[in-house]
């Protein structure tokens, strides 16, 4: 299996699949589509606004809706971002897990049996692809025409829908739905529409923009993620 895992094309495919898991198409709801010309302007404005964000510190709540569970599965965590190229995505409940990128290097930590453990992940390439996508979205770069068809809706705020072009990718992720905030300078939520009716919604709250974030918060050379001040 490892040999196959090392197959670059497959890795890229899986990476794409995962990325597509994190975005999703808007399902058939009564939504107000944004005309293409206006959408282009919104994307341009949002790109400029997002570009003013040097640092971001936000709590997140993930709600996973999966077909075999009648109840949503809730996870909590946080995300911190520092331009350029520093991103840390960490879950704190119910399981502790941390993923960080620092200047194109990926670090992965998991908390098992009472202690953090630094992993040597077998899918670093995938993680880097995913994290680069997230970094791109946090920087206001949504319109990657090579990967996605892009459309927009008001629900009521601006929602960007990214639909994968790749058929294999679509087997994993039908679309990503990015909910922009009213100021068009940040994300309120991401919905990943997966296979069947499964979807994952990640909501961001208590955002703090352009506060001071020390570089050591992204230091992957440590045995455990550097502690972070509580919100």
């Amino acid at each position: 299996m490892i040999e196959t895992l090392k197959n670059r094309s497959l890795i890229l495919f899986i990476g794409l699949s995962i990325v597509l898991c994190n975005l999703g198409p808007l399902s058939a709801r009564n939504l107000d589509p944004i005309p293409q010309k206006r959408l282009n302007q919104i994307l341009l404005d949002a790109g400029k606004n997002f570009n003013t964000v040097e640092t971001l510190k936000t709590l997140l709540t993930q709600e996973k809706n999966i077909s075999i569970f009648s109840e949503p599965i809730i996870s909590k965590g946080f995300c911190i971002f520092k331009r350029p190229g520093k991103l840390r995505l960490e879950f704190t409940e119910p399981f502790k897990s941390s993923l960080m990128v620092n200047n194109n290097r990926v670090y992965k930590y998991e908390y098992f049996n009472g202690a953090w453990k630094k992993l040597d992940p077998g899918n670093k390439e995938i993680m880097l692809i995913i994290m680069n996508h997230i970094t791109g979205w946090l920087s206001g770069r949504f319109n990657d025409n090579n990967l996605y068809l892009i459309s927009g809706f008001f629900r009521p705020e601006v929602t960007i829908l990214l639909t994968p072009k790749d058929k294999e990718f679509k087997k994993f992720i039908r679309s990503f739905e990015l909910g922009l905030n009213r100021e068009l300078n940040g994300l309120d939520y991401i919905i990943i529409h997966e296979t069947k009716k499964d979807f994952t919604k990640i909501e961001f709250h208590n955002d703090r923009l352009n506060g001071k974030l020390m570089d050591n918060l992204f230091d992957g050379s440590l045995d455990a993620p550097h502690p972070i001040d509580q919100w």
């Binding site: 899986i14 699949s17 995962i18 898991c21 994190n22 897990s97 993923l99 995938i126 992720i173 296979t195």
Partner: peptide, 11 residues
Amino acid sequence: HLIAQNDMGGT
């Protein structure tokens, strides 16, 4: 019944 996903998403 088990559905296994990558921890970043995707079945």
